[in-house]
Structure formats: structure tokens, C-alpha cells
């Protein structure tokens, strides 16, 4: 199965035509895409479904893309985020990077560049998750060695559970 088929994308932009066209192009390339026209809908969608990468427009009415970036990064540990903007500035790029954005593209952008950035973001997510799981396995091994009884082992294990499914 091509890697694109396994990548779940949340695409958020208040320009509906843009949203429709980009999601269709990404779908043709095999990605699983869900769209939202505002931040509130995006937050709800991210609560219901798990996404690997979110592509966010920076300037949207209501909750802005940069605020949405912070919310998604806080609530979804492994999600990677790519920002899109028609209003690119060094300040906003720095702010988004500080808030944890993986990439920052200026509209209109080259579609191949978006694909490359998407794949890079997915790889970063996999790496982050792998490292997290590896650390967790090590922690569990340490716990099992140090626990005096099966019950204390289970209690310590529960404390390790961060709720990430």
C-alpha cells in the first residue's frame, strides 16, 4: 500500500473553493483528507478522529490559524502541522515555528512542495511516536524489574498511561 493511503490529513481554510480543490487533489494522490472551514469545526473533528497531519490557513475569522495550531499541538501530542498563508511574514513564520509548526508555506505554493512537506511531516510524526513508544517500553521494563508485586507493577503502569491511543 502506498504511504499516502495511510496518512490522515485535516485541511482547514475559510476559502471553500481552495479547500475543495486541494482536498480533491490530495485525495487523487491517495491521502485521506477531512476538511473544515473554521477552527471550531477543526477542533471538533480532531476530537472525533485522529489525524497525522493538519494543514492550517493562518488567517481565518474567529479563532485564527496560529491559535488553532497551539490548541491542536496541546491536545494531540503527535500531530504535525503545516501552516499556509497568503500573508507571509518573517514574524508569523517564527511564531508558528515556535508554536511547533512543522512547515510554513506561502500561497500560492507549488503543489509538489506541499506533497514533500506533507511526507516530511508524516515521517516526523512517526519518528516522534516511535521514540515515545520506545521510551515507554523501556520504562515498563524498568518498572517490571523494580516492582515488588504484580499489583504495584500495574499501579505504576497506570501512572505511565498518558491516554494517547
Amino acid at each position: 500500500m502506498p504511504v499516502e493511503n495511510t496518512i490522515r490529513i485535516l485541511l482547514v481554510d475559510d476559502e471553500e473553493k481552495f479547500l475543495k480543490t486541494v482536498s480533491e487533489r490530495l485525495s487523487i494522490k491517495g491521502f485521506n483528507v477531512m476538511t473544515a472551514t473554521n477552527s471550531d469545526d477543526a477542533i471538533t473533528a480532531a476530537k472525533k478522529e485522529k489525524f497525522d497531519v493538519a494543514i492550517l490557513d493562518l488567517q481565518m475569522p474567529g479563532t485564527s490559524g496560529s491559535e488553532l495550531l497551539k490548541i491542536l499541538k496541546t491536545n494531540h501530542k503527535f500531530i504535525e502541522i503545516i501552516m499556509l498563508t497568503g500573508h507571509a511574514s518573517l514574524d508569523s513564520a517564527v511564531e508558528c515555528t515556535k508554536s511547533g509548526a512543522f512547515g510554513y508555506l506561502e500561497k500560492p505554493y507549488d503543489f509538489d512542495k506541499l506533497l514533500t512537506t506533507l511526507k516530511g511531516a508524516y515521517e516526523a510524526r512517526l519518528k516522534k511516536k516511535y521514540e515515545h513508544n520506545q521510551k515507554r517500553t523501556e520504562d515498563i521494563q524498568k518498572l517490571s524489574l523494580n516492582s515488588s508485586s504484580p499489583l504495584s507493577f500495574l499501579e505504576a503502569l497506570a501512572r505511565l498511561d498518558d491516554g494517547e491511543k
Binding site: 476559502e15 473553493k17 481552495f18 480543490t21 488567517q59 497568503g86 500573508h87 500561497k107 500560492p108 503543489f111
Partner: peptide
């Protein structure tokens, strides 16, 4: 002027993506 250029970039992005989509469809 910054807000106008933002609007024009949005328009160009839609045109660019739609042209790309038509090209993808032609390939298909």
C-alpha cells in the same frame, strides 16, 4: 495594500490549485 495582496494571493492559490487539479484529471 497588504490586505489586498493577501486577497490576490488567495485568488492565485485557488486558480493554481484548480489548474493543477484539471491537469491531474487529464492525466487520469
Amino acid at each position: 495594500n497588504a490586505s489586498i495582496s493577501h486577497e490576490l494571493k488567495n485568488i492565485m492559490a485557488i486558480i493554481s490549485e484548480t489548474a493543477g487539479l484539471l491537469s491531474d484529471m487529464a492525466d487520469m
